[in-house]
Design a binder for these strands. Sequence first.
RNA 1: CGGGAUGUGGCCUAGUGGUAAGGCACCUGGUUUGGGACCAGGGGGUCGCAAGUUCGAAUCUUGCCAUCCCGACCA
Length: 576
Amino acid sequence: MRYSQMFIPTVKETPADAEIPSHQLMIRAGLIRKVASGTYTYLPLGFRCLNKVINIIRQEMEAAGAQEILMPAIQPIELWQQTGRDADYGPTMCRFQDRHNRVNVLAPTAEEVVTAIAAGELKSYKQLPMNLYQISPKFRDEFRPRFGVLRSREFMMKDAYSFHADEQSLQQTYQKMYDTYCRIFKRCGLEYVIVEAETGEMGGSASHQFSIPCENGEDIIVHTEDNSYAANLEKAAVDPLPQQPKPQDIGQPEDVHTPGTGTIEAVCDFLKTKPAQMIKTLIYKVEDQIVLALVRGDHDLNAEKFTVALDRQHNELADEKTIEQFTGAAVGFAGPIGLLEKASKVIIDQAVAVMPVAVSGANKTDYHTANVVPGRDFPLSGANIQIADIRNAVEGDTYKGKKLLFKRGIEVGQVFKLGTKYSSKLGAKVLDENGSETLCTMGCYGIGVNRIIASAVELRNDKFGIIWPISIAPFEVIITALNQEDAEVVKTAADIYEKLRQKGIDVLLDDRELRPGPKFKDADLIGIPIRITVGKKALADGNIELKLRSESKSRHIPVTDALSQTLELVESLYAD
RNA sequence: CGGGAUGUGGCCUAGUGGUAAGGCACCUGGUUUGGGACCAGGGGGUCGCAAGUUCGAAUCUUGCCAUCCCGACCA
């Protein structure tokens, strides 16, 4: 392509509403423009990057035996009601009514649709295993879109779904996808880590997440120092804390007047105590039943662990009215004493069970209870009571005796073993070798295409702009032709350009009538990995310049060697 | 959804009751040409929207809308 013919609106100044480097640079380099909160247009340069990544994914998926299909973005709500994920996704799912008042959703993912296809078409175990994938836009009405394309409401996802007659076959494909993902991210030039993950509203038995370690990532990766264990925060298990000795001289529970202290912080200020000495009583609803979660004041409830403890039943935080009715007090004053018996289920975090003495809400507006002894003043066992790990890991926790460390990451892919969650609800069955019906066992495998691009930019940039890995760069080579009035310069640049194109290289010829400064600045900002500079000074000696975006030095080489040396350089960058 | 902030030409910003301003970008002409040039001229804004206070509102008040930041069920 000739730069003069291309739409590449670079901007000199950093946009005021872009916070992190990838967002700023993707706008400045003319890759994307925002249309509304969480929705972006990919301009020619950005779309080229997107397609580079898509091509890598497609090649690797095909090599792994997956078949590409395309499912609709518009799906009927009934499919989602059949699996119960209508409620699981809740407001995150975009819905709309059509003119016939049918409710439709904009696909946040496609398990239901693909399983319905399988249910209708697959008859025999001989057709399995089968792995279907698509690369298409997905929609999620995020409560808070942010960081440019890292968390957007519409995004490009590669989603694959595999069907199997048995568990071993699923394991094989799962492993194959796992290996394929490693190749994809490596080819995209990204350093990644793989962590154990929760299956979330996907359901299923096992899951791994592929994450790009990065300061601005939204995910927290938890790992031991020796990396023998790594998981995301939703999953990361912690060792139980040691039982603390219970002093003998603790008085009876005593209600204390604590006006207007509905938060842990306020109570602690008021009573001069510490969050670690408090018990938080959280009230959840499962269908119409009340379920309680008890965690220490300085700990956060882990929604995933909590859901697992509830056998994956859909749950949500109770509303204000329900809480007031159930506790008889304003929100912020719930406590375990006298309340546990009324709940249909209680999950007590391990850390609460070992507290010697605590302060909790008194189930009375503006009152807290001091001298609460777990096990003495409220039960730690019983038909409706269970002790479990339901909190987030924190600094200082261990797992299997090893200290846990934390770092941030951007989630770019995840693989799940789904089991029969979808096939059972949508009736995806085949006849097995014995002629009896058996449910398909499934796996699913997702990649966030936009996030690959954003993480690459996030990790690879300097004060001048982006530094693309060659495999996903919009162009592999840029020829900066200075002195557009000099016929020799123009001819030499055009000549190298044509020869590189003939060799199949993606090359951008900067033929704009501009002074050299802006041309160099744009080339650096856009971040094309190899730059050939053609200018009359070097050309007087029969030379052009070859420079890597990642290095500051350039070298002069004879015009006659330009093609061969550039090809060599391209090859060596791919080899890295 | 709660808390905070911001909305002034395409972009970045100044302007806190008295004629809408500057830089960048854009158009024309000229000079310039190895790291975001210079001179001269030019186009472009109902100051987010609506109502109110006032002789007079970008500026004060109220409501709404949009965007961003922090937080709470996230790929």
